[in-house]
Design a protein around this nucleic acid. Structure first.
Ligand SMILES: [Mn+2]
Ligand SMILES: [Mn+2]
Ligand SMILES: [Zn+2]
Ligand SMILES: [Zn+2]
Lengths: 145, 145
DNA sequence: TTTGATATTGAAATTCAATATCATCTATTA
DNA sequence: TAATAGATGATATTGAATTTCAATATCAAA
């Protein structure tokens, strides 16, 4: 059993909630997908195998997974809330490939250090930050549009 | 007359569009406000003086101002499109004060340099980026919640 | 087992900002 | 003047996020 599953069970227990088939299955599918999924994305995958599961349950389960620190919201500027794995994934920033839709997760300790310095300089106490760089790869450059 | 106004007139001319009272007035109000306004924010200010102007016109005018490079969209993660001045304002990032709602616009050339290096290292051609740091100031720290 | 309290579910409804539609209005030109 | 093109504001529509609600499942206690 994945560590995330037992984490989720513990979380649910402390909240007085239950691990249902639906929740377990949605978590399974979420863990099996290394992408930034919207609720709809995840719902579409889930319903392929079990068409009885509703969007609302996917939506609610993702919220629970966020509360349990297993998932977290990502906003890549495309006007949809997306979710990524949080457990076992530290802070990171994104390079987003605007043509092919791919992305890379990166951490640049030099940048992180300068961010802290910058904040200190202006008397600002940082809690979290977001850095997304949008661009293209070589392949994409060749494509028109 | 503000430089932005003549810019807008030129832009409209090349597009075969007209400078109307509404457009001129909306631009005036926009320029007079040094904030990150949503369409609704701007509409609320505008209608105080001229209640005959509709939301749709504010919406359309902001789109035009973006096309004319006088305004630009900002997304500070609060699920609303906001607009800020673009003309005369180069690229900048934001420190966002999560409690008092204030913000600072910053540019750290050290960070920008490291961003470029990072991209080069992974063969990524950056087009634009976004960096927002969310935190608090001393005053806000003292407040509960 | 049964029961009852409580949690869960999926369909459908609602919300809310963003955007499109459309029947006037208005300015400009033939 | 009439014709044309654009502009406007009220209203409708969209689409994602979220809530509602009646039906169902769970599970501990009787
Ligand atoms: Mn970072
Ligand atoms: Mn920057
Ligand atoms: Zn990520
Ligand atoms: Zn700004």
């Amino acid at each position: 059993m994945a560590k995330e599953v037992s984490l989720f069970i513990d979380f649910l227990k402390t909240k007085g909630l239950k691990l249902t088939k639906q929740r377990e299955y949605i978590l399974d599918v979420f863990l099996a997908t290394e992408r930034h999924l919207s609720v709809e994305d995840l719902y579409n995958i889930v319903k392929k195998k079990d068409s009885s599961i509703g969007q609302a349950t996917v939506f609610r389960t993702l919220k629970l997974l966020c509360e349990a620190d297993i998932a977290q919201e990502v906003d890549l500027g495309d006007k949809r809330i997306r979710y990524e794995h949080k457990y076992g994934h530290g802070h990171h920033d994104h390079l987003v490939y605007i043509k092919c839709g791919k992305f890379i997760e990166v951490v640049d300790t030099g940048i992180e250090r300068l961010q802290d310095k910058l904040c200190k300089r202006v008397g600002f106490l940082p809690k979290r930050h977001k850095m997304d760089i949008f661009g293209t790869c070589k392949q994409c450059q060749k494509k028109k549009r």
